[in-house]
Design a protein around this nucleic acid. Sequence first.
DNA 1: ATCCTCCCCTAC
DNA 2: TAAGGTAGGGGAGGAT
Length: 1111
Amino acid sequence: MSKRKKNTNWGENGFEDWGGYMAAKKAKLEEQFQIIASTEFHNASTLFQGIAIFVNGYTKPSADELKRLMMAHGGIYHHYMRPRITTHIIASNLPYSKIVMYRKSQHPVPICKPEWISDSLKAGRVLDYQPYLLYTNCTETQPRLMFKAGGTNEKLTISSNNGTKDQNCLKSLSETAKQSIKDIATTLSVIKNNKPLSSEEILSENDPCMLDNCNNEEFTKPNSVTFKSINAARIVSTSVANSSVAPEPTKESAVNQRQVQNVQPKSNHNISTQNVGFLTEFYNNSRLHHISTMGATFKDYINELRDKSDGIFPGLDRLKSTIRKTQTTVSPNGNGSDSDTEIFDVSDNGKKSVGNIVMHIDMDCFFVSVGLRNKPELVGQPVAVAHAKGNRKTRVPTKAVEGEVNDNSEAEREGNMEDDDFGSMSEVASCSYEARKAGVKNGMFLGQALKLCPNLKTIKYDFEGYKEVSYALYDTVASYTLKIEAVSCDEMYADCTSILAETGLNPMQFAKIIRKEIRDKTGCPVSTGFGGNKLQARLATKKAKPDGQFYLEQEMVRSYIGSLNVRDLPGVGMSTTHKLKGMLVQSCAELRNISLASLQKEFGKKTGEMLHNMSRGVDNSKLNLEHVRKSVSAEVNYGIRFKNSIDAEDFLKKLSVEVCARMKKANVRGRSVTLKVMVRAKEAPIETPKFMGHGLCDYYTKSKNFIVAVDDEVIVTREVLALWTQLQQKPEEIRGIGIQISRLESLRSKAGTTNILNFINKIKPCDSENKQRGCDENQLLLHNIEVNSISKKSDSDNGKTENSKNLTTFFSNSVKKDNLDRQRTLEYPGLNNCKIDDSILPALPEDIRNEILHAKHNTVNFEHNKEIQQPGPSKMVTTSKLNMLGKTIQNEESLASKTKKDVCLSSDNNVSNINNFEERPAYNLQNPFMTSDHNNSLFNVLMESETNQETNILQLTQDLDEAVLAELPEDIRNEILAAKIIKKKKNDKKGDKISRPSEALAVDETSSKSSEPGQICISEKKSSGKKIQTSQESYFRHTKPSTSNSIKAKLPPIEQINMAVLVELPEEIRNEILNEYRMKQQEETSLGTKAEVALQTEHNIAIQNIWQLCL
DNA sequence: ATCCTCCCCTAC
DNA sequence: TAAGGTAGGGGAGGAT
Ligand SMILES: Nc1ccn([C@H]2C[C@H](O)[C@@H](COP(=O)(O)OP(=O)(O)OP(=O)(O)O)O2)c(=O)n1
Ligand SMILES: [Mg+2]
Ligand SMILES: [Mg+2]
């Protein structure tokens, strides 16, 4: 087992600052979102008027869906329990402790199953909730746990009360099942200890047993109270053979099998992609996923509140009236000694009318504070939130864990851990201020944290709790103002200028009030900072913490900020700090001594200026009040272990579906998809230091553009799989996968391309080039080549980033390992430098082999050879042509070959696009081989294509379906569409009647079943691809087939035409299309069929309106 | 100049 | 064991 690389790069105590890693990624929300019905809300129903629900925990339908249902039918949805306001709690499963809690609350409300909502909806009236009460007869509808005992392999299974067996239970218990375990355990625990356990703890406590075999040491712990309790609770234990345990035994990876041998009974953690429910399980447990999605949630939430705002701010109004009352009762000279009245003493304020006042507010050690709400005994102690308990090094689990807290001081950990052995590699999400005194920091490995603070207690996550507290936080602030910029789930900026002006309070007074309010509502401490701008406010918060407040007044700005370390400045992280250190700058005061010019030279124009300004407390940025999302992504870099490409593709599909679900949820579509894979670095061990982590990796990205914004999972999945194919990575080496969608367009009218203004604005004034292209059918072939790029970087555990060259993974995978160490770089297509072992050639696919052989014989020097010899500053290696080949050049990275690493292949390297993706025959057929002018073999292929070009084009356009179109570069696609219109027009003139929707504008007839109308996906690639196109253009310029003249096409309904398509068209063509529709509309109008064009979505209505304007 | 793409860096 | 995600700002360097 290799050790983590030391963080030699970053002196200081660097490690904790990196948290041990570079940022990594994950993705995925509950698959439950897929069950969301596409409920339409056109008719304002008042079915649920007067009902205000709070959804607790996992439900089906999901909380999200319930929220939609309530809002659509006149009900109210509360994000957290609001005594006296919430009328019903909705839950499918609730831990006993929570039920008790709710029942003993001052204003108990019924706890109903979500079916009450859905059934009421079905019935069209609000049904009596009595039959839907949760736990009136507890086990009635709950699954029952079947604990299979005996033998060495014990598995939990569940059987629901109707007797059907959960097929997946062996691998991963359903949410409800887990909940049931919690419930029972909680109940019994309450009975035994007279003290309820939190659901998180119980679940976590039992997780290893639930998800794994039950020979887990955890299970044999003498004090495994909860588990024994469960056993006592009619949970049947039965023995299950391994083979029957794993529905897909073939999915056991080598790694897992090894583990199976080491750890005696077979491991069946739902912790890698080898397991069925992995994605959900992972996301359910990923703190980073949770804080990310919660961050997005609250940004949206603020937008939503602002949209719906009636301009009334209850909190502010209440405050104002309180102040008025106080003013009348308290003497105006403000000598009241009582703090409560002092707060409202406004008499001294207002004299110094400062400018804007920004408040920054941030919960103190958020996760810990939330977790400690019901563990008062731990307040004041060093506490950390982490998944593990820090017992990794404990040989004998002698320690009795009383469910709740893990007191590590009593744990018997192995004595001296090596310097770079951190013990538990579970990460500390948040730690209390007591722990911070010992040097513990957020993001640190638990093992290291324990070294610094042996008394550290760990507590479990409570994601539901975080969300509730966050909502309370946001609602509270939002009751004073909506000039809020959400930063994260525990943090925001608010412009308090008007609040302070209206109330007459000074910042500290207001801080006291709002902090108290938040603390009362949430039970968690919160700190606030005030200043003249965001920067000052945030730095003030730093001083305020913990549980405090601070107003950084102008006269203090300079001295206060000067005393700070540069690292304290927001935006200054490890890298910047390190660079500054090299400039002998440590404090902000020292930073001020560096000239603006120097800073800009070192860090770039804007960053330099930022540093310059920040060191002086200057920050001109405004609060970002209207947040607009620019990308949607999902990635997982944990637990990724593929045994074969089926595994990999399977996961890619799931992840694709996930990003699509996120797009839909965010009401956006994207025009670009990027696949990122993390690949085990050659020198990295197969088994990562961190359990199921990604370890030291290289990573590759590859992207594709669509012509029209897309959120269809079929399209996205297909493209992602195509990208995956092209990346040509060994599935076994993959350690992380990410899919990002960018170039978003909002489906809400905002500023997408569906807006007529954008439509018009986007029309390029100079379309001469467009015309030229529109007429040049040769481009069809020329452009029909995917030009993608692959980039690679190295990612190391210690966060140090080493850039490396691109790799032809194909070769890297094929070539003998020994050769890999040498720089048998395939400098493509300058293959004269290639050091490919000839012995591998026979193993290559014929076409590739031929290509290589041809290339090798070609000794012409390419321009890029010069570039290769120059150590350029570019760390990026663009390998467009190679990608098209489906291969990447692999330049073996070595630290010694820094210059080689910086090779930048010029983009006139060409490559054929050998893409065997079986679902796209037409595409493959039409893909010419691309080549440099010097590459004869490829040249010939190209010429061959060219020979039949005209025919091909016609075939292409005739047989075109969406799948094919999807693959085409944007330009080509436009041309095809345009050509079809033209053709159609010609045909029409000959007598063909225009009629109904058809394939013409690409809304495929063949795949419309799976994809939404108007979604057209087109692959394209710019940047490096452009050069290729250019060279090809010159190549084909001599051939100029007439525009298609035998294309049959019908006019699709207006609503199926996406504006984005039209926008891209040359004006000439666009006008023709518009004319067509004018004609059509006249026809339809005269026929009275116009009404048939019933548009259902807002989107389409918008489009229709646009058309009304156009026509 | 200004755009675009592919990154790196940062924050929570 | 362990759950290393996600979004945005901006720089480099090439295309226009
Ligand atoms: N590396 C990190 C940093 C933060 N978080 C989570 C847990 C934190 O509680 C929450 C909020 O982050 P903060 O930066 O606000 O940190 P805390 O709230 O924990 O402490 P502070 O009092 O410094 O705000 O985000 C995390 O999981 N991993
Ligand atoms: Mg915080
Ligand atoms: Mg925070």
